[in-house]
Design a protein around this nucleic acid. Structure first.
Length: 286
DNA sequence: AATTTCGACAACCGCAGGCTA
DNA sequence: TTAGCCTGCGGTTGTCGAAAT
Protein backbone atom coordinates (compact mmCIF):
# COMPACT_ATOMS: atom_id res chain seq x y z
CA UNK A 1 0.00 0.00 0.00
CA UNK A 2 1.01 3.62 -0.42
CA UNK A 3 4.04 5.10 -2.05
CA UNK A 4 7.68 5.61 -1.16
CA UNK A 5 8.32 6.52 2.49
CA UNK A 6 8.16 10.21 3.16
CA UNK A 7 11.53 11.99 3.11
CA UNK A 8 10.89 13.57 6.50
CA UNK A 9 11.82 10.25 8.09
CA UNK A 10 15.40 10.87 7.03
CA UNK A 11 16.89 12.96 9.80
CA UNK A 12 20.30 13.44 8.12
CA UNK A 13 18.96 15.56 5.26
CA UNK A 14 20.41 19.03 4.89
CA UNK A 15 18.32 22.12 5.65
CA UNK A 16 18.82 25.84 5.27
CA UNK A 17 20.16 27.99 2.45
CA UNK A 18 21.11 26.35 -0.81
CA UNK A 19 24.64 26.54 -2.16
CA UNK A 20 25.40 27.33 -5.80
CA UNK A 21 26.67 23.75 -6.24
CA UNK A 22 23.36 22.34 -5.03
CA UNK A 23 21.49 24.71 -7.34
CA UNK A 24 23.59 23.57 -10.29
CA UNK A 25 22.95 19.89 -9.53
CA UNK A 26 19.21 20.44 -9.20
CA UNK A 27 18.90 22.52 -12.38
CA UNK A 28 21.00 20.07 -14.35
CA UNK A 29 18.96 17.10 -13.20
CA UNK A 30 15.55 18.69 -13.84
CA UNK A 31 16.58 19.98 -17.26
CA UNK A 32 17.57 16.45 -18.25
CA UNK A 33 14.94 14.40 -16.45
CA UNK A 34 12.10 16.67 -15.38
CA UNK A 35 10.49 16.43 -11.96
CA UNK A 36 7.67 13.91 -12.15
CA UNK A 37 8.40 12.63 -8.66
CA UNK A 38 10.01 15.09 -6.28
CA UNK A 39 10.95 12.38 -3.81
CA UNK A 40 13.19 10.79 -6.40
CA UNK A 41 14.77 14.06 -7.57
CA UNK A 42 17.27 14.59 -4.71
CA UNK A 43 18.37 10.96 -4.64
CA UNK A 44 18.97 10.81 -8.38
CA UNK A 45 20.47 14.32 -8.55
CA UNK A 46 22.92 13.50 -5.77
CA UNK A 47 21.51 16.01 -3.30
CA UNK A 48 21.25 15.44 0.44
CA UNK A 49 17.90 17.27 0.55
CA UNK A 50 14.30 16.16 0.84
CA UNK A 51 12.05 16.30 -2.20
CA UNK A 52 9.96 19.03 -0.71
CA UNK A 53 12.97 21.27 -0.27
CA UNK A 54 13.99 20.63 -3.89
CA UNK A 55 10.50 21.43 -5.12
CA UNK A 56 10.41 24.72 -3.21
CA UNK A 57 13.87 25.71 -4.43
CA UNK A 58 12.87 24.99 -8.00
CA UNK A 59 9.44 26.62 -7.99
CA UNK A 60 10.46 29.69 -6.00
CA UNK A 61 13.94 30.38 -7.29
CA UNK A 62 15.49 28.21 -9.99
CA UNK A 63 12.64 27.86 -12.48
CA UNK A 64 13.78 29.46 -15.76
CA UNK A 65 10.56 31.42 -16.28
CA UNK A 66 10.86 33.28 -13.00
CA UNK A 67 11.02 37.05 -13.32
CA UNK A 68 13.75 38.40 -11.07
CA UNK A 69 13.98 41.94 -9.77
CA UNK A 70 11.61 44.38 -8.09
CA UNK A 71 7.91 44.65 -8.70
CA UNK A 72 6.63 47.42 -10.96
CA UNK A 73 3.93 49.90 -9.92
CA UNK A 74 1.49 48.10 -12.22
CA UNK A 75 2.27 44.74 -10.62
CA UNK A 76 1.80 46.17 -7.13
CA UNK A 77 -1.55 47.70 -8.07
CA UNK A 78 -2.63 44.42 -9.61
CA UNK A 79 -1.69 42.50 -6.47
CA UNK A 80 -3.63 44.94 -4.31
CA UNK A 81 -6.69 44.65 -6.54
CA UNK A 82 -6.50 40.88 -6.68
CA UNK A 83 -6.01 40.69 -2.93
CA UNK A 84 -9.15 42.74 -2.39
CA UNK A 85 -11.05 40.07 -4.34
CA UNK A 86 -9.22 36.88 -3.44
CA UNK A 87 -7.76 37.58 -0.01
CA UNK A 88 -4.61 35.69 1.01
CA UNK A 89 -4.89 33.24 -1.90
CA UNK A 90 -1.29 33.79 -2.97
CA UNK A 91 -1.16 31.02 -5.51
CA UNK A 92 -4.29 32.33 -7.25
CA UNK A 93 -2.90 35.85 -7.22
CA UNK A 94 0.42 34.56 -8.59
CA UNK A 95 -1.44 32.88 -11.44
CA UNK A 96 -2.32 36.35 -12.75
CA UNK A 97 1.30 37.55 -12.64
CA UNK A 98 3.51 35.57 -15.03
CA UNK A 99 6.98 34.92 -13.68
CA UNK A 100 6.04 35.71 -10.09
CA UNK A 101 5.72 33.08 -7.37
CA UNK A 102 3.16 32.90 -4.60
CA UNK A 103 5.98 33.09 -2.04
CA UNK A 104 7.40 36.24 -3.64
CA UNK A 105 3.98 37.91 -3.69
CA UNK A 106 3.28 36.88 -0.12
CA UNK A 107 6.59 38.40 1.00
CA UNK A 108 5.93 41.58 -0.95
CA UNK A 109 2.53 41.88 0.65
CA UNK A 110 3.81 41.36 4.18
CA UNK A 111 6.79 43.71 3.85
CA UNK A 112 5.58 46.50 1.52
CA UNK A 113 1.99 46.52 0.40
CA UNK A 114 0.39 46.13 3.82
CA UNK A 115 2.28 49.17 5.12
CA UNK A 116 1.57 51.08 1.92
CA UNK A 117 -2.18 50.58 2.37
CA UNK A 118 -2.06 51.43 6.06
CA UNK A 119 -0.28 54.69 5.30
CA UNK A 120 -3.02 55.47 2.78
CA UNK A 121 -5.63 54.92 5.48
CA UNK A 122 -6.83 51.65 3.96
CA UNK A 123 -7.40 48.53 6.00
CA UNK A 124 -5.24 45.85 4.31
CA UNK A 125 -7.67 43.13 5.35
CA UNK A 126 -10.97 44.65 4.24
CA UNK A 127 -9.58 47.19 1.72
CA UNK A 128 -11.99 49.71 3.24
CA UNK A 129 -11.00 53.06 4.78
CA UNK A 130 -9.81 52.57 8.33
CA UNK A 131 -12.43 53.48 10.97
CA UNK A 132 -11.33 51.30 13.86
CA UNK A 133 -9.66 53.61 16.44
CA UNK A 134 -7.33 50.83 17.56
CA UNK A 135 -6.13 50.32 14.00
CA UNK A 136 -5.76 54.07 13.61
CA UNK A 137 -3.67 54.11 16.75
CA UNK A 138 -1.47 51.35 15.36
CA UNK A 139 -1.08 53.28 12.15
CA UNK A 140 -0.23 56.40 14.10
CA UNK A 141 2.44 54.52 16.02
CA UNK A 142 3.84 53.28 12.74
CA UNK A 143 4.19 56.76 11.31
CA UNK A 144 4.98 59.04 14.25
CA UNK A 145 4.67 57.40 17.63
CA UNK A 146 4.45 60.42 19.95
CA UNK A 147 3.01 63.27 17.93
CA UNK A 148 0.34 61.22 16.24
CA UNK A 149 -1.03 59.79 19.46
CA UNK A 150 -1.74 63.31 20.70
CA UNK A 151 -3.31 64.20 17.36
CA UNK A 152 -5.48 61.12 17.36
CA UNK A 153 -6.62 61.76 20.90
CA UNK A 154 -7.58 65.30 19.89
CA UNK A 155 -9.53 63.96 16.92
CA UNK A 156 -11.40 61.44 19.03
CA UNK A 157 -12.23 64.15 21.55
CA UNK A 158 -13.48 66.33 18.73
CA UNK A 159 -15.74 63.55 17.48
CA UNK A 160 -17.17 63.07 20.95
CA UNK A 161 -17.94 66.76 21.19
CA UNK A 162 -19.57 66.81 17.79
CA UNK A 163 -21.69 63.93 18.95
CA UNK A 164 -22.87 65.92 21.96
CA UNK A 165 -23.79 68.90 19.84
CA UNK A 166 -25.58 66.64 17.39
CA UNK A 167 -27.64 65.39 20.28
CA UNK A 168 -28.43 68.93 21.34
CA UNK A 169 -29.70 69.72 17.83
CA UNK A 170 -31.68 66.52 17.77
CA UNK A 171 -33.29 67.37 21.08
CA UNK A 172 -34.21 70.83 19.86
CA UNK A 173 -35.82 69.40 16.73
CA UNK A 174 -37.75 66.68 18.50
CA UNK A 175 -41.51 67.07 17.78
CA UNK A 176 -44.05 67.20 20.59
CA UNK A 177 -44.09 66.15 23.27
CA UNK A 178 -40.81 68.12 23.36
CA UNK A 179 -38.03 66.77 25.46
CA UNK A 180 -36.95 70.32 26.28
CA UNK A 181 -40.01 72.56 25.93
CA UNK A 182 -38.38 75.72 27.15
CA UNK A 183 -35.49 75.58 24.69
CA UNK A 184 -37.66 74.56 21.78
CA UNK A 185 -39.92 77.52 22.31
CA UNK A 186 -36.98 79.87 22.43
CA UNK A 187 -35.18 78.41 19.39
CA UNK A 188 -37.82 77.15 16.94
CA UNK A 189 -35.50 76.50 14.05
CA UNK A 190 -32.03 75.16 13.50
CA UNK A 191 -30.47 78.44 12.39
CA UNK A 192 -31.65 80.18 15.52
CA UNK A 193 -30.37 77.30 17.53
CA UNK A 194 -26.95 77.66 15.99
CA UNK A 195 -26.86 81.43 16.41
CA UNK A 196 -27.91 81.36 20.02
CA UNK A 197 -26.42 78.17 21.37
CA UNK A 198 -23.82 76.62 19.13
CA UNK A 199 -22.05 79.79 18.03
CA UNK A 200 -21.28 80.75 21.63
CA UNK A 201 -20.19 77.17 22.18
CA UNK A 202 -17.58 77.61 19.50
CA UNK A 203 -15.54 79.47 22.03
CA UNK A 204 -15.30 76.30 24.02
CA UNK A 205 -13.54 74.65 21.14
CA UNK A 206 -11.08 77.35 20.15
CA UNK A 207 -8.06 78.80 21.84
CA UNK A 208 -9.47 82.30 21.49
CA UNK A 209 -10.66 84.21 24.56
CA UNK A 210 -14.30 83.54 25.21
CA UNK A 211 -16.84 86.20 26.14
CA UNK A 212 -18.49 83.56 28.24
CA UNK A 213 -15.61 82.46 30.34
CA UNK A 214 -11.95 83.20 30.63
CA UNK A 215 -11.23 80.03 32.53
CA UNK A 216 -11.45 77.56 29.70
CA UNK A 217 -8.93 74.85 29.33
CA UNK A 218 -6.07 75.48 26.93
CA UNK A 219 -6.47 71.94 25.70
CA UNK A 220 -9.65 72.78 23.84
CA UNK A 221 -8.20 73.68 20.47
CA UNK A 222 -10.81 72.32 18.08
CA UNK A 223 -11.35 74.78 15.27
CA UNK A 224 -14.91 76.01 15.07
CA UNK A 225 -15.06 75.93 11.27
CA UNK A 226 -14.08 72.28 11.32
CA UNK A 227 -16.79 71.71 13.88
CA UNK A 228 -19.36 73.45 11.73
CA UNK A 229 -18.34 71.66 8.57
CA UNK A 230 -18.51 68.40 10.37
CA UNK A 231 -21.95 69.13 11.71
CA UNK A 232 -23.42 70.34 8.45
CA UNK A 233 -21.54 68.53 5.71
CA UNK A 234 -19.74 65.54 7.09
CA UNK A 235 -21.50 62.32 6.19
CA UNK A 236 -19.91 60.61 9.19
CA UNK A 237 -21.91 62.96 11.33
CA UNK A 238 -25.12 61.24 10.34
CA UNK A 239 -23.64 57.86 11.17
CA UNK A 240 -22.89 58.75 14.74
CA UNK A 241 -24.79 56.75 17.34
CA UNK A 242 -28.35 57.85 17.81
CA UNK A 243 -29.38 59.84 20.84
CA UNK A 244 -30.44 58.00 23.94
CA UNK A 245 -32.96 60.12 25.88
CA UNK A 246 -31.90 61.13 29.32
CA UNK A 247 -33.69 59.07 31.90
CA UNK A 248 -35.25 60.42 35.11
CA UNK A 249 -32.42 58.80 37.06
CA UNK A 250 -30.14 61.57 35.82
CA UNK A 251 -30.57 64.09 38.55
CA UNK A 252 -29.76 67.20 36.47
CA UNK A 253 -32.25 67.78 33.62
CA UNK A 254 -30.57 67.80 30.23
CA UNK A 255 -31.87 71.25 29.24
CA UNK A 256 -30.53 72.62 32.49
CA UNK A 257 -27.14 71.15 31.66
CA UNK A 258 -27.15 72.99 28.32
CA UNK A 259 -28.22 76.23 29.93
CA UNK A 260 -25.55 75.79 32.54
CA UNK A 261 -23.03 75.16 29.82
CA UNK A 262 -23.64 78.50 28.06
CA UNK A 263 -24.33 80.49 31.19
CA UNK A 264 -21.82 83.39 31.65
CA UNK A 265 -21.52 82.44 35.27
CA UNK A 266 -20.20 79.10 34.28
CA UNK A 267 -16.64 79.25 35.51
CA UNK A 268 -15.21 75.89 34.61
CA UNK A 269 -15.33 73.18 32.01
CA UNK A 270 -16.28 70.46 34.44
CA UNK A 271 -19.96 70.45 33.49
CA UNK A 272 -19.24 69.88 29.82
CA UNK A 273 -16.87 67.10 30.75
CA UNK A 274 -19.59 65.68 32.98
CA UNK A 275 -22.01 65.66 30.07
CA UNK A 276 -19.36 64.04 27.91
CA UNK A 277 -18.84 61.42 30.58
CA UNK A 278 -22.57 60.83 30.96
CA UNK A 279 -22.95 60.49 27.23
CA UNK A 280 -20.09 58.08 27.10
CA UNK A 281 -21.69 55.96 29.79
CA UNK A 282 -25.09 56.00 28.14
CA UNK A 283 -24.00 55.52 24.56
CA UNK A 284 -20.24 55.23 23.92
CA UNK A 285 -19.40 56.76 20.56
CA UNK A 286 -17.08 53.86 19.68
C1' DA B 1 34.96 50.56 14.51
C1' DA B 2 31.92 47.60 16.97
C1' DT B 3 27.44 46.44 18.14
C1' DT B 4 22.53 46.47 17.74
C1' DT B 5 18.33 46.88 15.24
C1' DC B 6 15.58 46.49 11.27
C1' DG B 7 13.91 45.05 6.76
C1' DA B 8 13.74 41.90 2.99
C1' DC B 9 13.28 37.58 1.41
C1' DA B 10 14.45 32.66 1.20
C1' DA B 11 13.28 28.54 3.30
C1' DC B 12 10.79 25.62 6.43
C1' DC B 13 6.60 23.74 8.78
C1' DG B 14 2.32 21.72 8.99
C1' DC B 15 -2.16 20.96 7.18
C1' DA B 16 -5.67 19.49 3.71
C1' DG B 17 -7.09 17.27 -0.25
C1' DG B 18 -5.91 14.42 -4.04
C1' DC B 19 -3.81 10.44 -5.80
C1' DT B 20 -2.20 5.71 -6.26
C1' DA B 21 -0.29 1.11 -5.28
C1' DT C 1 -11.46 0.07 -0.94
C1' DT C 2 -8.10 2.25 1.70
C1' DA C 3 -3.70 3.45 3.90
C1' DG C 4 -0.52 6.55 3.42
C1' DC C 5 2.35 9.25 0.28
C1' DC C 6 2.43 13.51 -2.84
C1' DT C 7 1.50 18.13 -3.85
C1' DG C 8 -0.07 22.67 -3.16
C1' DC C 9 -0.88 26.15 -0.11
C1' DG C 10 -0.60 29.65 3.62
C1' DG C 11 1.68 30.88 7.83
C1' DT C 12 5.92 31.31 10.24
C1' DT C 13 10.80 31.36 11.05
C1' DG C 14 15.69 32.00 9.97
C1' DT C 15 19.32 34.32 7.69
C1' DC C 16 21.79 38.02 5.97
C1' DG C 17 22.94 42.63 4.65
C1' DA C 18 22.11 47.53 5.48
C1' DA C 19 21.25 51.22 8.49
C1' DA C 20 21.41 53.22 12.90
C1' DT C 21 23.53 53.96 17.32
Amino acid sequence: MGRYPCCKLDIDLKKGPWTSEEDEKLVEYIQENGHRNWQLVPKRAGLNRCGKSCRLRWTNYLRPDIKRGGFSEEEEEMIINLHSILGNKWSRIAAHLPGRTDNEIKNLWNTHLKKKLLKSGIDPVTHEPITDPNLLLSLSNLMNPFESVLKLQAELTEMAKIHIIQNIIQVLNTPSPPLIPSLQENYPNIQQCYNNILAPLDHFFTNEPSPISNNLSDNMVVNSSILENNMINNSEYSSLPSLVPVTPENSVPFDQQIIDMINPSYDDFDALEKILDDEANINPPF
